[in-house]
Design a protein around this nucleic acid. Sequence first.
DNA 1: AAGTGGTCTAGACCACGTT
DNA 2: ACGTGGTCTAGACCACTTG
Lengths: 253, 253
Amino acid sequence: MAADQAVWPDDLFADLDRTGPVPLYFQVSSRLEAAIRSGDIPPGARLENEIAIGHRLGLSRPTVRRAIQEVVDKGLLVRRRGIGTQVVQGQVTRQVELTSLYEDLQNAQHDPATRVLTHETRTVPADVADQLGVSTGSDVLYLRRQRSSDGVPVALLENWLPADFSDIPREQLEQQGLYQILRSRGVAIRVAKQRIGARREHGDEAELLDIERGGPLLTMERVAYDASGHAVEFGRHCYRPDMYSFETTLVAK
Amino acid sequence: MAADQAVWPDDLFADLDRTGPVPLYFQVSSRLEAAIRSGDIPPGARLENEIAIGHRLGLSRPTVRRAIQEVVDKGLLVRRRGIGTQVVQGQVTRQVELTSLYEDLQNAQHDPATRVLTHETRTVPADVADQLGVSTGSDVLYLRRQRSSDGVPVALLENWLPADFSDIPREQLEQQGLYQILRSRGVAIRVAKQRIGARREHGDEAELLDIERGGPLLTMERVAYDASGHAVEFGRHCYRPDMYSFETTLVAK
DNA sequence: AAGTGGTCTAGACCACGTT
DNA sequence: ACGTGGTCTAGACCACTTG
């Protein structure tokens, strides 16, 4: 039974910072995740039981449980009652997260660039007013941007924001992702609802994305909400399907 | 301050079943979710604080927290330290869940139908062997199905499964979703990794989906894992983009 | 029978945002 | 100063799986 024995690289989990602001469960879960992604804890390996781990780390069982649960929710671990906790088989991939495309590309170590095609205040279209929860006929900021990665156009981004954001300068939009800009203004996105689909290219999209006329596009519509639950942004994006796709890990509750 | 006063329709949360197998946190969270989706607790409404709710329901604070957290994770509630818990603004939509398309369509109260185009044992293709984690050259069950909703073709589904499942009868595949069949055989899908993209139609897809030749398709590739972390199924699906799209709610952690 | 995760309790202290 | 959620503890009992 040595092969599937419980595994726990203990030097990795020796020094917990009890004074700093980082929660203990988070310290444990992030190191655990790193150990799995790096292969230090291999696919199929069994973890020790929760109480033993807690004893080893000097933590209570609820804290250990929470740390493990975080990693389970990312799809890297599987729990079974009466059995134990195991690393999933198969290569690990990254989670779809609540970030903008710009940050996605940055994280993937590409060189993102943005060209602002349109930046103006407009009367809100009826369908957008509905999504944003603003009254019909009010003014909103309309953006249309072309996003490239390593010099290749990847996406066309249309966004509508409440008029409070009309002072976002065009130059900043060329340098940063929209969500980065919003965060720097103290607006944190907490919830977003998005719909992913496909359609045929039309208008000037083929030219701007450097694809064949009438070719397929991957599309995404998104409404983003801040911490108070108010809609902050509505976006209607389209992506070159040979350059971008959406990855998700789903976990049964 | 009467307008945004804390709200809690107390008759909805009076009778908790402490004897049955349904966890208390789940009883509370599911009623809470229903109350929000139905509008009984309106958008923007503030909940009582956790201790008060616990006292009202005769529950400890961790149990109440867990119930609320479930609803937060679905994107229906937003928590702010020092402030409280509020219902998000904006209309609520359903979550992308770990179900098959067949069940999605059933839930949406359509009439799904399946035509099995291919049902045979094949040598596994190299790329699929990689995804499924089976050795190259081994046999797998290959399925190709056409899925319709209310008589209109919606999707073409290609699936590869380990040879243990070769005895799944063709007739059952016409009547049930694949995940339903797997569940009835004691295989529960716990984790799935999927990639959503788009491409141009090719081959016989235009005919089978009743779309224009060369038109756009929404695509999804998925590897599904069971409770022990082993890959159970690899799927490569394509959807008529005018009939299907993927909705997701993202919540910042 | 033994071991595992799943649930639940009744407290505690802290960080944060408002008043 | 006060009230909120965020974290953490140290137990308890139960359900499920395996030997």
